[in-house]
Design a protein around this nucleic acid. Sequence first.
DNA 1: CGGGGACTGT
DNA 2: ACAGTCC
Length: 605
Amino acid sequence: MESSSSSCHKHSSTSVEHPKAIIHIDIDCFYAQVEMLRNPELRSQPVGIQQKNIVVTSNYEARKYGIKKCMAVTDAIKICPNLKLVNGEDLHNYRAASNNIFAALQHWKCPVEKLGMDENFIDVTNLVEERIKSVKDDKITFVGHIYEESITECLCGCHLRLKIASQMAKEMRKKLFDELGFTTSAGIAHNKLLAKLICPLHKPNDQTTIFPEHGASFMSTLQSVRSIPSIGSKTTEALISQNIITVSDLQKVSVDLLKKHFSSDMAVRLKNLSIGEDNTPVKQTGKPQSIGLEDSFKTVSVKSEVEERFSALLQRLLVLVREDGRIPVSLRVTLRKKDVKRLSSHRESRQCQVSPSIFTINHGAPTVTEAGQQKLMTLIMRLFNKLIDLSKPFHLTLVGLAFTKFQERMTGRGSIVNYLMNDISVQSVLNITNDCDTSASSMDYSAASPSSSTTTDLSDGEVEPSPKKPKKVNWIAKRRCLSKEEVASPSKLKVGELRLNSRELEKVSELRLNSRDRSLTPRASPAKDNLSDTDTMKDGSEGGNCDECPSYVDKEVFNALPDEMQQELKAMWKNPSNSELPRSSPRIMNKAKSNTILKYFVPHK
DNA sequence: CGGGGACTGT
DNA sequence: ACAGTCC
């Protein structure tokens, strides 16, 4: 992004100062719209969405009565006695709707970043550039509101770009309404900050564009620094203590003054935000990095009730994990102690590893047996014990449960490995030999996590061995065999379905440049491999990030694979009993075959 | 003051 | 790992 402008910075006539076009789309009163779509009778009535004793949002009918976000239920009913309350504690439907919206926005092939459930940023810069080439300028008209008509146009061409972006915003909003039934509001600007802040100006069901030259003056109309996204209660407190209350105040103070109370980085960022400048990129949203649930309540003070709450949460959580498709490897328990002083925030948590073998792939989805659930409950209560001294009374107001790290699942529909395993050319990469018994006992099974890890070792006979003391296993003996049909089954997936996200693609190029110093397991013991005597070993050189690779694997090919897949493969080599592998003799990857694989992973040009 | 998550910093 | 901050 930056490089495009620097390449022509000498020629001010072609310099692009505001090269991007960003759309922010906000679903109007999201929860309420979801409920009204489910039950159209609600449309004509005032509706509030209730979570515990709070009305978290409401439809526009209810807002006429003065219902506000996060209002107490009792207050809301006083204001509006015939308010229809819908319980919104289970977010399942909202999450599904949110995913539908996100999916619909992928249609334009632009980066889309989700912000919470009901907001999305779309970077349409590339799309705008394409359309500029293919369409006559004078046929382009604005759609929606403009924050302030400009007398003079910015020379960088951003007005034309934003004009086109305003049309795209309209198209997107139309699609969301026609296909999903949602009314939305949109903001169009050259950065995320202004796009988000300008969005509500003509809410609901309309859109607004702002030009860069009005950024600073628009920002100064905001009353509190708090209204700037990323400035929360703590930062606001710090600013107010310096007598900086409004955005206008912030515009006037020097960066040096700010540096006395914030990190240098933060000081510069704050100053830029105040004048409407923001260079943070729209980052394509992918799979979540954690999946969790919380349950809050008045007070819980007995262990058995805690256990019941966790058990209920676990049941629900396992459904979400099944839907996600990945296998979790880390579990976190959170709780909030009753504390008269602090309000909601003060949470404490403990986490530990979970053995992936607790999960089994069933009809392509990770599931847990009854016994597995017992094991998880044991882990949970053990973490709970670390947080609470049971010899003393305790009072909790919240418990939470989250899976926080994932191993891409190794088999099943949609899995990269599943796809590749159906490709004969790749079986040689994945191949596990039947005749390396001698090497099996000397394989390096060190876990990828550094031994300095402070991960709680909760292991006993029931849980995963500690990464600190890698246990040598004979993985040949433990390995499951596949039936002929499974090995021979034709690929169920089209190449097009094997789409990597941009992060993975980045990773590939990064790895290829940089495969040398990523060794995760500095070897303490030189006692390694009799593997090197295999006839398929073609490169005896040290280095690469492939220390755990069996010798028959082509390291170049391995290093070119996406990080996640590398992790999958390493996990399989480490624990073959956990995966289903084809059983055939080792082969050297031939060059032509390698290329056919690589073309799926390496970005074109 | 609900129910999720992401990111940052140590 | 875990807390803090933000949405």
